[in-house]
Design a protein around this nucleic acid. Sequence first.
DNA 1: GGCACCAGAATATGATCAAATTCTCAGGTG
DNA 2: CACCTGAGAATTTGATCATATTCTGGTGCC
Lengths: 228, 228
Amino acid sequence: MTETTSPAQAAHENPAKLPAHEIVYQKLRAQILFGELVPGQAVTIQGLVETLEAGMTPVREAIRRLISDGALMFQGNRRVSVPLLGPEDLEELIFARKTIECELARRATPHIGTADIDELVMIDHALDKAIATGDVAGYLVQNYSFHTALYSHANAPILSDIADRLWLRFGPSLRVVSGRLGTQSFPDRHKDILDALRRKDPEMAALAMERDVCQGMDQVVEGLRGGN
Amino acid sequence: MTETTSPAQAAHENPAKLPAHEIVYQKLRAQILFGELVPGQAVTIQGLVETLEAGMTPVREAIRRLISDGALMFQGNRRVSVPLLGPEDLEELIFARKTIECELARRATPHIGTADIDELVMIDHALDKAIATGDVAGYLVQNYSFHTALYSHANAPILSDIADRLWLRFGPSLRVVSGRLGTQSFPDRHKDILDALRRKDPEMAALAMERDVCQGMDQVVEGLRGGN
DNA sequence: GGCACCAGAATATGATCAAATTCTCAGGTG
DNA sequence: CACCTGAGAATTTGATCATATTCTGGTGCC
């Protein structure tokens, strides 16, 4: 997702007006982010043409975009697959998430009003519910929503864009780990973030975010160590 | 450019084997990075089909990739153009460059051998020459080469990838400013970086890099303030 | 000034060609 | 006798193009 005036917002007024390649991109993106697609899984153009009932060109363009996002990987020969993360990759992702997302939390803090906090609380409740009921897909969606909603207030389109692609990279792995360990193992660190926002304390928000990021990524590291 | 096993390296063994969309991407990318394209300039598919003598599909895919890279901008209606940076954008870019590129310098330091330093020195000499002769295009190319060569030793594909896209974002603006102010105004901070590398001092390298980044971006900020 | 029309560009399809993987079937070996 | 190996065919899949369709923006008429 680019930070430019999103074509997605035009969707609400008229869904039919979204170009096919945009629809395909959104669908594929969601599948990657929320785990329909497993790391290592091969992605074929013709397969998607059938699955998503789209033409070849739109699928092709969507795949190129996602490759550029780091959400898909061009395997040298002409095959495309979902990337399989190694420990080194995770280490880089941790650094990047920490610096970028903490900064986003820091920048968002002064712009967050009470209405915005209410919205975040709502998402967090949905998150709790997903955790309680063991709804892995719901957990992933709400967790992503929480971060995205927060960052949208940071007035930092470029940094938000970077953060977004980072999520695309570890999304599939997060799904695998969640599915393996269950949602119970994920404590919810968002309460601390909300606290910091209420107090309008940017540094505290950044710190809480760092904890959230570290905790989340540690789960992935642990999960991947055992599994693959 | 994605960090995955690059199709570009296959280019050396057999240039003809590069797919058309990859070639188009590289060409367009270079044009954006090194300033053939001016910020705000409209980019049409059919125009590129003629200019680059490629088919429509490859051009289309290359454009999608570059939009995802942030190097091009989708203007809502079906127009595509080179983004025009505002002061807020530059501020974000500065933060991102500082954190990411300093870290890359830090990580590269321990892996740099004397042969690698020689290579960097060579690039830096070419850079000096470009500055001395007022060769703006050469300056841009060599400056980019220096950073890219350095980061390639950091063993951090994801971070390098992020840095690469950052360059794509401010490349066109850098070109405009350079053309306006001339190369004379650009002092060369790379000597300090090289010094740090020779001493194998990661923190010093990071610091030198920060100075280089700040100095370069300040030029752009200043240049854009007056111009547009 | 507003509306209809027109040109040009982008989107999307399906066909065609090229490449790569997979499958199959011998042939040989332990 | 079972299994591994490798050459070659068959099939799947990707790359590219030519073409039809839809949409945007501008122009000129009323």
